[in-house]
Simulated assay, not measured.
Amino acid sequence: MTQDWKRKALRGVLLGLVGFVALSIGLVMLFRVVPVFGSMVMVERKLESWTAGEPLDIQHQWRPWAELSGHAKLAVVAAEDQRFPRHFGFDLTEMRRAWEASRDGGRLRGASTISQQTAKNLFLWSGRSWLRKGLEAWFTMLIELIWPKQRILEVYLNIVEWDSGVFGLETAAQHYFGVGAHQLTEVQASRLAAILPNPREWSASRPGPRTEQRSVWIRQQMRNLGGQAYLEQL
């Protein structure tokens, strides 16, 4: 009887794992071609607002690659992940630097790539558990295998949060500057990229000294990367 129970439990676990793998692969394949009109972060933010008794209005509009400003594409890569075209989802150089800095007593810094951020924003919840980190690695590997780099950046720009409840580049461009995502100037794009570390507290249209300084640095990095010709690597 005990052996039968163990076999059934093992069979159930294996079937669950197979089902999860199949479902996750299917979702990633689907989102390779289908516009993404929502994310787990949007769901989480909405649920948090309901729990707090202050319902949040989620603002989001999808725009395809051709309708996203080249300045914004380059600014986000320059700010967040300059080795984006060359790595396979994980920037080992930045991970090593982050580890060495924390080991030497420095402030723990993030080393997440655009691929990792896309994976966790689209599919996962907030938090720092080992389970979540494992799922993040799994989905990061999947999108790197199934999506081209251009698609990863396209989805990221369309689902990242730029202010409380403001998701995606189109909505952010209208929210801060009153223009469409394709009309953003280099300065506007650099300011949007500059607030990504703390989008609910920093403003792209009314940048404080820290945001403005970071946006200037981003524009310099954009030039160092070779301008929009850099995007041809994607």
Rank of each mutant, 00 (worst) to 15 (best):
I146W: 03
R109H: 05
E154C: 13
A111C: 07
F139L: 15
V179C: 13
W130D: 04
E80N: 11
Q116C: 06
H182W: 15
E161G: 05
G168M: 07
P148N: 12
R151V: 10
S115M: 07
Q117E: 03
Y176M: 06
G178D: 10
L184C: 10
T185Y: 13
L135N: 07
A137C: 03
T93P: 01
K120L: 08
R107L: 14
F177I: 12
A172C: 10
T171R: 03
V187P: 00
R86L: 13
E161P: 01
A172Y: 05
Y176W: 15
V155W: 02
D91I: 01
I159N: 00
I159M: 08
D91Q: 00
H87K: 11
A98G: 06
L157K: 02
F167Y: 15
F88R: 14
A181G: 13
K149S: 06
Q183I: 08
L92D: 01
R128T: 14
G178Y: 11
R128V: 12
K120H: 08
Y176S: 09
D91A: 05
L142E: 07
Q188N: 10
E161N: 11
S126G: 07
L124K: 12
I159E: 02
G178S: 12
L92K: 10
A111E: 03
E144D: 10
N121H: 05
A189E: 03
W99S: 04
T93N: 09
G168P: 03
S126Q: 14
K120V: 11
F139T: 06
Y156N: 05
A189T: 11
I152Q: 04
W147R: 06
T118I: 12
R97F: 00
D163T: 10
Q82K: 14
W162C: 06
K133L: 06
V166I: 15
K120N: 04
W125Q: 08
G106M: 13
F139E: 04
N121M: 08
L157I: 12
G134S: 05
Q82H: 06
A98N: 01
T118N: 09
G105C: 10
V166P: 04
G110D: 04
K149D: 02
F177T: 11
L131N: 04
M95Q: 02
H87L: 08
R96Q: 03
V179Y: 11
G105W: 15
W147M: 05
W125L: 13
R151W: 11
R83C: 04
Q82S: 11
F84K: 01
L124D: 05
E80Q: 15
S190L: 07
W162L: 15
Q116I: 06
G105K: 14
L131P: 00
R97N: 03
S102C: 08
L108R: 06
